[in-house]
Amino acid sequence: MLPTYCPGCHAQLKVKCLKCESCQTEVSGNYELPTLALLSDNEQQFVLRFVKSSGSLKQMSSELKLSYPTVRNMLNDIISKIEGYETK
């Protein structure tokens, strides 16, 4: 799991360096983390599952063995979180 928050002060981390495993080139800079990477592991799994099920919450609820409104609430929580990141 990619760390997204500073373990010392809990501020949001940024990407300083990326490395090519093939030719060892390093690209340095100060890049923002993608919004989806800021979500927790479970939330990212949820988003992946949502996309794979073509956005069908009904299908997701039967796969996860959860009720439809529970799955919809999970999605709403993720939407609120993403909106929160975007307004920062």
Binding site: K65, L66, S67, Y68, P69, T70
Partner: peptide
């Protein structure tokens, strides 16, 4: 129980 069962089933 509603995290698992709701709607028509409930």
């Amino acid at each position: 129980p509603f995290t698992r069962i709701a709607g028509w089933q409930a």
